[in-house]
Simulated assay, not measured.
Amino acid sequence: MDFIQNFLQHSITFFAIMDPIGVSAIALSLLSENITKTQISTIAKKSSLTIVIAFFVVLITGDLVLKIFSISENSLKVMGGIILIMTAITMVNGSSKEKTPSDSKMDEEKAIIPIGIPIAFGTGLFTTIIIFKSQAENFTDIISIALAFSINALIFYFVLKNSIYIKKYLGAMGQSIITKLMGLVVGAIAIQFIVSGVVHLAKSYL
């Protein structure tokens, strides 16, 4: 029961922060307008593989980062929460990602940077993974985190692969509404991180 509860929490959090539909809209704005189905499929594969590799690198080295800089879990919660709030405000107000001119020859090169990192896998995901890892009590919790992210990476792949059809179906307004709703969820998660971190830090100093 605990595993299912943790898994659902991890999955919902990753989905809200990653916002695959919003990211797909940004990705399309960076790619050429006449991009083919084959090209977008290749880009989706490369971008998804990029965020999966980045996830496992952060998951494995997260504890090392905390130890090297002598950062406590609760301090990271507060700072991570602040970063997530900034992300949430950006999502609610509209993406501030810079749009650059597209070139069909350079489309596939954009799969890793900037679509994979930092658009799909940004600072919000980075800090959230480290926080989840620091909260893990056993190996089962680590499995839950990895499985939750892997499923979200798969969702991201399918959404980006079919982003052309999703854009036609939802339209710009539909994508914007979903991103804003996800922004509210991310903001709520951020507040939980901050409050939890502040409470535990206060207790440690009293």
Rank of each mutant, 00 (worst) to 15 (best):
A54R: 03
T61H: 10
K45N: 14
V57Y: 07
K37Y: 09
K37M: 09
I35G: 01
S95D: 05
G81L: 07
S75K: 05
T90V: 09
I35Y: 01
A44C: 02
L84C: 06
N93G: 13
G80P: 07
F55C: 05
T38N: 14
T50I: 07
F56H: 04
I40F: 00
K45L: 15
T61K: 13
F55K: 04
I60S: 07
T42A: 14
G80Y: 01
S48E: 03
T61P: 05
M91A: 00
N74H: 11
T90S: 15
N93S: 14
T36K: 11
I71A: 07
I71C: 08
V58D: 01
I68T: 09
K46E: 11
L66D: 05
F69R: 07
G62E: 08
M91S: 00
T90R: 12
T61A: 15
A88Q: 01
K37S: 09
Q39V: 01
L76G: 00
I85W: 06
G94C: 00
K67V: 06
A44V: 02
I60W: 13
I60L: 13
E33P: 11
K37H: 11
K67F: 08
A88M: 02
T90A: 14
E33T: 12
L64P: 09
I43Y: 10
I71W: 01
V57H: 05
I43F: 10
T61I: 15
I40Y: 01
G62I: 02
G94R: 04
I40C: 00
Q39Y: 00
G94I: 05
M86I: 14
V58N: 02
N74D: 13
T87G: 10
S95I: 03
S72I: 01
S75D: 07
S47Q: 03
V92F: 11
T61G: 13
I53E: 08
S72T: 12
G80F: 02
I71F: 04
I71H: 04
L76A: 00
K46C: 09
V57I: 15
F55I: 06
S72F: 00
S41M: 07
S41N: 14
I83T: 11
